[in-house]
Design a protein around this nucleic acid. Structure first.
Lengths: 334, 334
DNA sequence: TTGAAAGCGGTACCAC
DNA sequence: GTGGTACCGCTTTCAA
């Protein structure tokens, strides 16, 4: 391991000067700089990042807590996070929690032990263990997509309520009256917002929603398959199904076709998120586009402000959605 | 920031004892241990991970270089990596390179500056910059799926050659004679192996492959769309198309349908990777399953052996594939 | 402008 | 078993 001392000897200067040359070259004469840089190159010297970090007390890393890596929507967010972090000189520690509190605790603990400077949570839970509760108070943390239940951390999310209303209006415009919903995680704010959005429109239109038509509780393709099976087994099956993400919709579409239903002639299906493949489904999926990449970037901006103790303009950002009307929705069968 | 000194004072012992209690509790009397632990809890003490790392010279982190986060196949590998790393007390630094040498250099440099102990490369390029070439010699690095061109780092990959042969036999068994190929990255070993596998069987069967029927050069849905368009524009279009990953196949299937072709009656299409959605396509995609998760786990095992300077049993692992015959392939149209 | 030296927060060796 | 302390590699006063 070639260290600063070796370089300083090689250059015939003090370690302080080497450090300066590398950090603030303008504090050093042209000649010394050249001398030092030559030695640096000759020795193949790279400053030990760990040592720098202990000294400065900053790790320049952030932890991202994600419940599930395989969800392409999350990946898009993480892509945004990674990009923005990289631009700011931060690196990203990946924390795949599988939704388990234990793993959340462990990853969240990294911020407590100076391994990371802040935390981005993609799930809705408070990731610290009870025993860390107090310490966590002052930790920079933001959540994206979701909100951390009952806490006042900043969050960046979509206007799920409005988006759901738009989807509902879209379907009602096609004459639908009987709806089914296949939900993901039920305990989150997202779930409540989306459900409320749908119900609010139905109510305004005088349509009653049968709670038996709400099924599903995970954001997986299988949930879509199983959910569709349940909904279609009903004596009065829905003519339109809201799926709370695109994966669920893909599963639902698959199952509906297996039942011999044509989409959208016999059944309309909507997704949520606009993952890449959704446009290439047969038929292409009507869905809500979330600016996932941007959300990730924005989360980093907010987090870094917290880390730098700069004041936040606002602590909650509700981003606009885009309704993508594709071919998985159409006129209700009469 | 509460540090070891504060705890030692609180417990009325030396910092050495606090350190011992936390690291190797059995070197300390029951009473001291309790005293110390009480102080630790009272102070809400977490050892500074950075300090520990400078001292020990080990960061317990590994960097994963991935060309593209949105590819679900890569994510599955990373999931395996993350899991295995976590179990071994390592954390994962995510390096989304976008295939850019510059970003690869930067992330690879993390190992040189003690920010990480090793490197897993999912792409086929040598990630270090020329100037780091020498230093890189002794760096623990493995590649998964791909091989680092012209280097002798250990790698874990699928038997791409055999898998392609199996796919080809499968299609020939259906009576196909005219084939198209939509490739991903052309410069990689994967590409060469898959192409060679296909060609070897064709040759054995006395079928000539027209090189004009090889199109595409990126692993994206759009490549599939565009590739299919090109192939189908041919005066003698293929009756079967090999796609070098599932995303390409999804695009190709989409485009083929747009041309009014039925799959598999008019055109057979095969994918590669077996990403989750591929089973839910219409029709479900015939593809090659890669044990992505396992490959990720295995990569970590090998990497940690290198980091610990344990001897490697073997430096190359070729994993077995599984051919999944689904409904996107069928008898050739006569 | 440069160097000496005191830390940053731990760990581990050496005495006792 | 426990404490004193040198030291990991770097940064940053403070003086010169």
């Amino acid at each position: 391991m070639t260290n600063i001392k070796k370089v300083s000897e090689l250059a015939g200067v003090s370690t302080a000067t080497v450090s300066r040359t590398l950090k603030s070259p303008d504090l050093v004469t042209e000649q010394t700089r050249e001398k030092v840089m030559k030695a640096v190159r000759a020795a193949g010297y790279r400053p030990n990042w760990l040592a720098t970090s202990v000294k400065t007390g900053k790790s320049n890393s952030i932890v991202v807590l994600v419940p599930n890596l395989v969800n392409p929507f999350f990946m898009r967010i993480i892509e945004g996070i990674e990009q923005a972090a990289q631009e700011q000189g931060y690196s990203v520690l990946l924390g795949d929690t599988q939704g388990k509190a234990e793993r959340e605790n462990e990853y969240a603990g990294m911020v407590l032990s100076n391994r990371a400077d802040g935390l981005i949570q993609l799930d809705h839970s408070f990731p610290f263990s009870e025993s860390d509760e107090e310490l966590a108070q002052s930790i920079p943390m933001v959540s994206v997509c979701e909100r951390i239940a009952g806490r006042k951390y900043p969050f960046i999310e979509l206007d799920n309520y409005a988006a759901s209303r738009a989807l509902t209006h879209h379907l009602i415009g096609y004459g639908h009256q009987r709806f089914g919903i296949i939900a993901g995680q039920r305990s989150s704010q997202i779930h409540r917002d989306r459900l409320a959005g749908i119900k609010s429109v139905l109510e305004e239109e005088g349509i009653v929603f049968d709670d038996a038509m709400l099924v599903g509780e995970s954001y997986a393709i299988d949930t879509g398959v199983e959910g569709a099976r349940q909904l279609l087994a009903n004596s009065k099956p829905p003519t339109a199904i809201f799926c709370f993400n695109d994966d669920i919709a893909i599963g639902a579409m698959f199952e509906a076709k297996r039942h011999g239903l044509r989409i959208p002639q016999d059944l309309s299906i909507t997704g949520f998120d606009n993952v890449r493949v959704s446009a290439y489904m047969d038929p292409p999926l009507t869905t809500v586009d979330q600016p996932a990449y941007e959300m990730g970037r924005r989360a980093v901006e907010v987090l870094l402000q917290m880390i730098r103790r700069e004041p936040l303009q606002r602590t909650r950002e509700i981003l606009p959605f885009t309704l993508l009307e594709r071919q998985s929705t159409g006129p209700a069968k009469t």
